[in-house]
Simulated assay, not measured.
Amino acid sequence: MSAVPNDQPFRFSTRSLTPAERLPAWYEVFCRSASRRFCSVADEACHADMQIWSFGPGDSSNASATQVRIQRTTLTHAIETHRTRELLTDGCDDLVLTIQEASESSVTQCGREVMANAGAGVLTSNADVSAMSFGGSSKFVSVAVSRKIIMALAPGAEDAIAKPTHLDSAVLPLLVSYLGILEDQSAVQSPEVAQAVSLHIHDLCALAIGASRDAAELAGGRGLRVARLRMLKDDIARHLRHGPVTAADLARRHRVTPRYVHKLFETEGMSLSQFVRAKRLALVHRSLSNPNLADRTIGALAFEAGYGDLSTFNHDFRRHYGMTPSALRAAVIAAGKGKA
């Protein structure tokens, strides 16, 4: 990957720009995105909203320091983008995996022309000229990854360029979900974590492209495991208030076995039930610490967090926090009066 600044995540929109200002501004943004490209629009009413962020240092001389650059784009009208011979002089040879989340696109590269429908992915190369056409309002995410790393993990990657049928359709949704969770960079608070995230994304891209047997085994125990675990935790957070959260329910929604769900949590030194209980307790703790909810009964807050039995909740809370729920609420109320 070419050495580029590890930019802070940023958002870009053309909605406040005049038609004459949009393309120049858009080009500047593309210089920081997954693939530096020229673009053209057929309708001046076209607008684009983009989010661009990256993980890992952009030092291409260090094989262990790999950067990924992610670009999420929403378009209101049809556009065409081109990576021209002129732009190839930037020296960037990244591989870019683009996944259509809505509508469709066509890609021309290396003498191939393909269509990608919603849910499909297309692999392109920044080392070669290419054209991408989006036929109307659309939404897609692009991930630029190190060619060197991907070729080591998936030696047949170049054969998958502009060939959607060569990509593993089961891995693409995992990758999209993992990227969605990572949009909140508050979870990535150190260079070490950012580097690990970068490696996980490379793992998932390699699995989607077609990793070698050894690399697939490595990625399955690293990037794939982390991605699935993050998705399960996100699923649990969404269903926490809906009652029991079981391995069987999670397994059915994510198309894995209940035993695999349990094993994923065991890799972090906890059981599924311990994780769910800690999340429920944290939810009630936040509610009890909120003076605006002082009129709500403790039992109501516990039941809303998914507890079905008040005595079990009181026991768990006292054991976890070293105080009773009523003691915490009294302390919060007392602190509020002291500030008044």
Rank of each mutant, 00 (worst) to 15 (best):
Y307K: 00
A65E: 15
Y27T: 05
L97R: 01
W53P: 08
G299N: 03
V141T: 15
P9F: 01
L23P: 05
H320L: 04
Q109F: 10
S212K: 05
G56K: 02
R15G: 01
S125R: 00
N126C: 14
L218A: 12
I70E: 14
A118S: 14
D316Y: 01
H262L: 12
A305Q: 02
F265M: 07
E21F: 04
P9M: 05
S125G: 13
A152G: 15
G111K: 04
R225T: 15
S60W: 14
L272N: 04
L174R: 04
A127Y: 03
P164W: 09
G56T: 05
F313S: 02
N117E: 15
V226M: 11
R228K: 15
F12H: 11
I99N: 06
V176M: 07
I298S: 01
H202F: 13
P9R: 02
V129G: 08
N292D: 15
D7Y: 06
D168M: 02
D184E: 12
F140K: 01
L95M: 08
A196R: 09
A187I: 13
A248C: 08
G299A: 07
A42S: 12
D214Q: 13
V4K: 12
A211Y: 09
R318F: 01
P164N: 06
D93M: 00
P291S: 05
A331T: 09
V141Y: 06
G210M: 08
Q8W: 02
R69P: 14
V129N: 01
M115E: 14
G210E: 11
A118E: 12
A20C: 03
L179M: 09
K139L: 15
V96D: 12
E104H: 14
D234H: 09
I209E: 12
A206I: 08
A25N: 13
G210D: 12
H254Y: 12
E304S: 10
G336D: 13
E104V: 00
A216Y: 05
D43C: 06
V122E: 13
Q274D: 15
N126P: 13
S16Q: 11
A160C: 10
T257C: 02
D168I: 01
A327V: 09
F303N: 07
C31A: 08
A227H: 03
P164Y: 08
M115L: 11
G308E: 13
S103P: 06
D309K: 00
V141C: 12
A331I: 00
N126V: 07
N314R: 07
S287V: 05
E28R: 10
L123S: 03
K233V: 13
L272H: 00
T89M: 09
V188N: 03
T74A: 14
L232H: 06
D235M: 03
F38R: 09
L218Q: 15
P19F: 04
S190N: 08
H239K: 10
R222H: 13
V141E: 14
K263N: 14
A216G: 15
H239F: 08
A302D: 06
